[in-house]
Every structure is written in structure tokens, then in C-alpha cells.
Write a protein that binds this DNA or RNA. Structure first.
Lengths: 137, 137
DNA sequence: CCTAAACCCTGTAGTCGATACAGGGTCAAG
DNA sequence: CTTGACCCTGTATCGACTACAGGGTTTAGG
């Protein structure tokens, strides 16, 4: 299968496939006489797996770890679960951070009543020399 | 004030200050005889403003826009409010996306019961050739 | 006066996960 | 025989920094 066909079957961009090959997420495929890559069905399956992991917010390094466990063949479900749980914790932390951020923004914007310069409470609040800490993103 | 002192007063890293100068977020300061940067109190205030915006998740480009409005002096509170609201919408979208992602992960992980290879339902679910779409991050 | 540590400078490269060319080669249809 | 779709390599770009390398300056202590 040529790269365009693999792209169609997976919904992945051609450049991204070449990128995944370069960084070792996908194996180097055989080449045809014209130097075109020749992908196999197993590569398609693997790529779909990668894309699903990415859609779930796993980093490429996490995906690499999962793939190594799979490729090694002697993975333990406990290891896999640990990666999943760690990632879930990450996601929950990010949600909590964003929610803090949201409420700070709501506070700021709610003070805004369309007045003219220089009475912008939004900017004034951001310029205040208070020690009040805003949550890090 | 030298760069280290500005870093201490703002909690910003020295390299980041030089970076902000390079990309035009901070003005080019005067230089002492030894070529050391000489920052003023107004720069400190400006940098604190920038850091607060960043902590609220504004991109550097959004910060740049806000600073241009301020520097121009003829900004309208409506413009500022619009930037704030647009950003708030962004944040809410990201929260919703992450929450979708969280529930997908919970589903995956909850099927995991510490079994041995090759009975890992977590990996199997990711390998499934279903058309079921996972939410994009 | 000397030395060591702390500070400052410029410039470049690296991070992550792609994306976007530039500049070429190949192939099938009309 | 040409057009357009496809493929190749290699490099540059994005955002927002961070981390050096390789140098100069200042400051405190002995």
C-alpha cells in the first residue's frame, strides 16, 4: 500500500506518517523499485492505534512506551494500566487548572461594562500590584 | 535595575525576560557602560502584567494585542472585553474537550483488572477496528 | 592584590508534534 | 506528449520558552 492509501485508510496526513516513521513510531517500510514506501496492513493497524492514543491525549512518548510493551510481547496489564491511570490524573489536573482559570476570567470579564479608556477594570485588575496569585496554567 | 533584580521582583526567569525583549513584548532597555541592561520600574509593572496574562492562559499574541491597545492609549473597553470573552470561550472549549477525554479514559481504565498478557482490554480497545470516534484533543 | 563566585552578555540549538514548503522524480489518463 | 496526481528528501517554521557554549564584569572575602 502506498503512503496516500495509508493516509486515506487512517485519516492521517501523509507528512505525519513520514514523521512517525522518522521518529520510530512506525517501522521503516520496504521500498518499491521507484523508492516509494510499501506499507502493510499491520502498519495500518499500528497507525490507527497511535492515532487513537493521540486522540486520547497521550504524548508520543507515552505511545512509544505502549508500543514497546506490545512489541516486546511480555507486557503486563498492570504496566499498561499504570500508564493509563497516570495519564488520567494528568487530564484531571489540567481540567482543574483550566476551571480555576475560567473562574478568574469570569471575575475579570464580569467587571467589564463597556466603559471608555482609561476606566477599564479588566486591564486595571491585571495591572494591580497585588500579591494575589493566579493559578498557573 | 539589572536583569537579575527584575527577575527577582517578578518571579520571571532571566532568559524569559531576554526572550520577551527579543520578541517585542518588553521594550529595549537602556544599557549601562558594561552593556548590562538597565530596566525601569515601568518595565517591571509591564512584565508583571504580561505574566498575569500568561497565567490566565492568554497567548503571547493576545498579550501583544492588549499591550498595543494600552500603548496606543486610545483603547476601548469593548475591544478589551472582546479579547477576554473570546479567551474565556477558548478555555471553556478546552475544558469540555478534556472532560470528554476523561470519560473515554475512565471507560478504558475501568476495564483493566490487572490480568496478564495478552488479555489487556485496555490495549485491545485501542486496537479495535471500530469506527467509534474518540474526541479530538 | 588576588581569586572565586555570582552575575551579565550574545548567539545558537533543542523541546513537542507536527506542518509547510522547495525542488525534484514517477506514473497513469487523455 | 502533456497534464495532473502522486511520491521522494531535506529543511524551515510554529509557540513559548529553556539550555547551553563561550565569553566578559562585578563583588565579597582573604
Amino acid at each position: 500500500m502506498r503512503i496516500g492509501e495509508l493516509a486515506r485508510q487512517t485519516g492521517c496526513q501523509v507528512e505525519t506518517i513520514r514523521y512517525y516513521e522518522k521518529v520510530g513510531i512506525l517501522p521503516r517500510p520496504l521500498r518499491a523499485h521507484n523508492n516509494y514506501r510499501n506499507w502493510r496492513q499491520a502498519d495500518c493497524r499500528r497507525l490507527k492505534f497511535v492515532l487513537r492514543c493521540r486522540a486520547l491525549g497521550f504524548s508520543l512518548n507515552e505511545v512509544r512506551t505502549l508500543l514497546e510493551l506490545i512489541d516486546g510481547g511480555h507486557y503486563n496489564c498492570v504496566d499498561v494500566e499504570a500508564i493509563g491511570h497516570r495519564h488520567l490524573d494528568d487530564v484531571r489536573t489540567r481540567i482543574a487548572d483550566l476551571q480555576q482559570l475560567e473562574s478568574s476570567l469570569v471575575d475579570l470579564v464580569s467587571n467589564c461594562h463597556g466603559g471608555k479608556t482609561p476606566d477599564c477594570s479588566f486591564l486595571e485588575a491585571l495591572f494591580e500590584d497585588s500579591e494575589q496569585q493566579v493559578v498557573q496554567e
